[in-house]
Design a protein around this nucleic acid. Structure first.
Lengths: 205, 205
DNA sequence: GTCTATAGGATGATAGAC
DNA sequence: GTCTATCATCCTATAGAC
């Protein structure tokens, strides 16, 4: 093993993640991936079997971690301040923010998530909902306890609004131009704070 | 001209829209487009010059109309009920809803919009912001008058949250499953109402 | 595990006949 | 305006040497 810090497999995953975020799944070729990862073109098929498998692996690596963080933060929030909505929203928003801030390619990953939502008919979407649906259901339950009187349908809509706004903001798609002199990290942190406040008011309405 | 109801150009645009929504821009080949439109492969380059031009044309066809509707509804809202926030939000949300409901393929276009922000196609993004940025600025101005005390930055963030939630909800990405027995139209109309309420509270916070 | 080489096919775009 | 035919390029995936 020439590089002990990052294995060939990890380098491929990192390069793929960045390129997927930038050019999409089908917009990224395995040649681009292997060139950036500085590995041989054949290594992808050796380690992952196919391009599709590489796509789901890129996903799993980040989402498993983010979902675990969200659930842990949710648990903490319910323990420390039961009945309060804002900490629950923060438990949902901030792990996504942290991922977006991550120097090690995580920032790109938020856009990969956005892309996955759009991938309506693909197996990727099914994979996501099967593997991570329980996280959203846990959040829905916790929020219901804070905002009694909402129908289940209303609750789910609002969670969807939150997820949509979060994805959009973290993917940096909007009109908001980062003011010059403000770091990317500061800018996104601000966005997260604003979103928590915005959503808290929305949920309580 | 064999088909007088839909020109070759329109058939290409319609087929491209559906396929872009389903597979993304780079995931869709011109061959797929021309096969579905039942026109010759060379017709795309004849009518549009390039694939990139086709992409922007797909946008222009729907967005010009939706933006005009938004601005007209905004004007009406400001005239009929000055200082009220909800009618302004409705002026923003409901034209998107109408498009999503449109029998003539408009529904797919909402998903194309979602694709656009996932794909981070810089050329497309520039085109959109240059051509439709003024619409959002007009809305920001109108909202500022309803919710004094917000910084420009806060206002823009909130508009972004609204746009993100709207796209996500109209594209039907969320966990919300349409209850059986409820029509697609009713379901989305409900979503729009809920979003207006949610966002109104958020903006006023 | 990593490489070279290549098979086998799809892609965007164009030239030129009608 | 519409067609066929084709170019040059790129793609994923694999076979086989080291």
């Amino acid at each position: 093993m020439a590089n002990t810090q990052f294995s060939t497999k990890d380098r491929i995953l990192g390069a793929a993640e960045e390129l997927f975020a930038q050019h999409g799944f089908s917009g990224t070729s395995l040649r681009q991936v292997t060139t950036r990862a500085d590995v041989n073109i054949a290594a992808v098929n050796y380690h992952f079997g196919s391009k599709d498998n590489l796509v789901t692996e890129v996903f799993r690596r980040r989402m498993d971690d983010m979902s675990a963080q969200r659930l842990e933060r949710l648990r903490q929030a319910q323990e420390a301040s039961p009945g309060e909505l804002e900490p629950i929203l923060a438990a949902f928003v901030e792990p996504a923010l942290a991922l977006a801030q991550d120097r090690n390619g995580g920032g790109a990953f938020i856009r990969v998530i956005a892309r996955a939502y759009a991938e309506k008919n693909d197996g990727l979407r099914k994979f996501l909902s099967e593997r991570y649906g329980h996280v959203l259901r846990d959040f829905a339950r916790a929020m219901a306890a804070c905002v009694p009187g909402l129908s289940k349908e209303q609750l789910y809509w609002r969670l969807d609004f939150l997820a949509g706004a979060l994805t959009y903001a973290m993917a940096d798609f909007g009109l908001i131009k980062r003011p010059t002199g403000v770091s990317d990290a500061t800018h996104r942190t601000k966005a997260a704070q604003e979103l928590i406040r915005f959503a808290a008011a929305g949920f309580k309405s």
